[in-house]
């Protein structure tokens, strides 16, 4: 930082500003930072302890839906592999379920569409603050996991996606309580139409009690794992790894 900027900052720093910049120093100090980061696990633990684990996220009426459900994040993976899948309507796409399961499985889009579906009008909350309401439809993630037979050593479910940000593959993870929650679906339809590319075609996760960045789009593989270590940078998701968002996004 230049001397001029330092001095200007020092002048501005009189009073509250001094305290505010002290917060910058606190968050750069390892032990303090660990305390700051503990809020994630505390929120997760408190919500699991105080909220019914099967409690449903609010569902809305048709007349409460957003006129336009905006896209966010990647609007197209833009990889040759994904482009080829999209070019023939995802006929060659398969959703792979693996990891700690008794029977690794692959589902075609037609198979997923022929399974029992849940349709729900729910609210999507971006971590930045905006909300959009849309109608999602798809099979329960729990049904897919039951077909594959999740082993008892599994603790988390990881979603591997077709898109990348800055060369790093997008991925997300949730615990088994959210994975088997009755509103957690692999959405195939938004507002009655097959998911378009902007919203994550051919399928995206809907985990309705968490924020938008957990709703992984362009899901290619679902993996049951005992630990998040060794996946990406180990924090359970692209944004968690690279920008320090909380792993538990229920708050």
């Amino acid at each position: 930082m230049s001397a001029v900027l330092t001095r200007r900052r020092a002048l501005l720093g009189i009073g509250a500003g001094t305290l505010l910049s002290a917060c910058d120093r606190v968050q750069d100090f390892g032990p303090a930072r660990r305390i700051l980061d503990s809020g994630d696990a505390i929120s997760h633990g408190l919500q699991r302890a105080l909220i019914d684990r099967a409690a449903l996220a609010p569902e809305y009426r048709v007349d409460q839906m957003s006129p336009v459900f905006r896209t966010n994040g990647n609007a197209n993976p833009n990889t040759p592999a994904y482009g080829a899948l999209a070019a023939n309507g995802f006929a060659d796409w398969r959703l792979a379920i693996g990891g700690l399961v008794a029977r690794p499985l692959q589902f075609s889009l037609a198979q997923l569409r022929s399974m029992p579906q849940r349709r729900q009008i729910t609210r999507h909350d971006c971590v930045e603050g905006w909300s959009a309401i849309g109608q999602w439809q798809g099979p329960l993630l729990g049904s897919l996991l039951k077909l594959a037979g999740v082993q008892s050593a599994a603790r988390y479910v990881v979603f591997h996606c077709a898109d990348q940000i800055g060369g790093a593959p997008y991925y997300e993870s949730i615990d088994l309580i959210d994975a088997f929650h009755p509103q957690t679906i692999m959405a195939l339809f938004l507002n009655g139409r097959p998911l378009d590319i902007g919203h994550g075609a051919p399928t995206r996760l809907r985990v309705e009690r968490q924020l938008g960045y957990k709703q992984a789009k362009y899901v290619m593989g679902i993996e049951a794992v005992p630990s998040l270590a060794g996946i990406g940078k180990g924090k359970g998701g692209f944004w968690e790894d690279n920008v320090d968002y909380d792993w538990y996004a229920g708050i």
Partner: peptide
């Protein structure tokens, strides 16, 4: 119940300067 960029907002707060915010440079996660 909803509200995003394409919906009508009733108020658009100013961008608060770094000497008022924690952290002092843009970082939503922190």
């Amino acid at each position: 119940v909803y509200g995003a960029n394409l919906d009508t907002s009733w108020f658009n707060p100013p961008t608060f300067p770094g000497w008022l915010t924690i952290p002092s440079s843009y970082n939503l996660a922190l």
